[in-house]
Write a protein that binds this DNA or RNA. Structure first.
Lengths: 195, 195
DNA sequence: TTGATGACAGATTTCAATAATTGTCATCTG
DNA sequence: CAGATGACAATTATTGAAATCTGTCATCAA
């Protein structure tokens, strides 16, 4: 019924657009099909359920957050402490930027993320792994106190919860948030540095 | 219409009871009056609005949390680092206990606290002050690195968000939470200890 | 006089009927 | 045949009329 062939990617983009316009509660498969000019049956050819479609949307969103993060981290010839500071600062900045540029859309993705814990968990695993790698480097090179990098990475992440967890997004509007984050990062780094 | 005189305290207790039974969405002033065997007009003699009544409930609840915390902190002759560890551990334990013993009631109070930010803020100020006092002691006695106790207390609190903020209560069910909290506390203390 | 009452207006919530959505699938089209 | 369609049953959301609640206040009782 249309010129271009309908594929999953196109459907995901259309879904994102509908989500942007109507929010997570009011987007229906029918809306998505309408935007694409196809019947809703065609959408079900590519996704087995509405939940699967929403999951594809959140997966792509999280993929892009990871891309942004990788782009933001300049893996220069810095020492591990400086690299860890840079990594955390970038993690915060990437999330804060997303949350600030379009708070409603961010809230929408937060709902989707809460719905699909598998995707959220694998995103968390990625973040932890980024931290763990820098910690391991620092321990190996003697910049950090000896420790289990896995456990320490988790502690660092946990201490950063306020600056990373979307549930705290409202607080990210405050102008003080940058100073508070810097203060926590310094506290963490001081705790890890070799004596 | 009743033997005992109706006072604000009695009304607050009855409101707590109704909240416990019906949850925050479904408790009405009429329910409270019914439980007390008075007309709802009598409730309005003591509280100008339903919001004011709910605020009184959350104030008393937070008062009691503070009492529990003060009781839990043994101000023994410990060094400031050990006292800070004990303080944070107690703060976590008190909140976790409340959340675990009756999750629905805890969720109810969370709703009330979100409604009345003034009360929440003054509760936060209390917690920060407890931390600040120990930090100041430690800095004065040379146990901690020199720092601004006010700012450091805030950093310590921010790093503890995951273990203190009611929005994270679901995670407090996990058996790993104690180990994770201990790990973050150690990270924080290592960062503060004098070198 | 102090404190309780219940009628009342306006706002909010409930509930059942109505409409829309989800997911399936037999059918159609190129 | 690959891919799209829309009728359909089951589920979920919307709607609007009726019920309930909030907050006020004139009235009453002790």
């Amino acid at each position: 019924m249309r010129g271009e062939p309908l594929d999953a990617e196109t459907i995901v983009s259309a879904t994102e657009e509908v989500l942007r316009r109507h929010g997570p509660e009011k987007t229906t498969v029918l809306d998505v099909a309408r935007l694409l000019g196809v019947s809703h049956g065609s959408v079900y050819r590519h996704f087995p359920s509405k939940a699967a479609l929403r999951e594809a949307v959140i997966r792509r969103w999280l993929d892009r957050v990871r891309e942004d993060l990788v782009a933001a981290v300049q893996d220069a010839e810095l020492t591990p402490p400086d690299r860890l500071r840079g990594l955390l600062t970038s993690m915060f900045a990437v999330k804060w930027a997303k949350a600030r540029e379009d708070p409603e859309l961010f809230a929408t993705f937060r709902v989707l993320a809460a719905e699909h814990s598998t995707e959220s968990r694998s995103h968390l695993a990625f973040l932890l792994d980024q931290i763990r790698a820098v910690v391991a480097d620092g321990v190996a090179g003697g910049d950090f106190e000896p420790c289990d990098p896995e456990a320490t990475a988790r502690a660092v992440y946990n201490a950063s919860t306020r600056f990373l967890d979307p549930r705290h997004a409202p607080e990210w509007q405050s102008p003080e948030i940058e100073a508070e984050a810097a203060s926590v990062i310094s506290l963490i780094l001081d705790g890890m540095r070799a004596r």
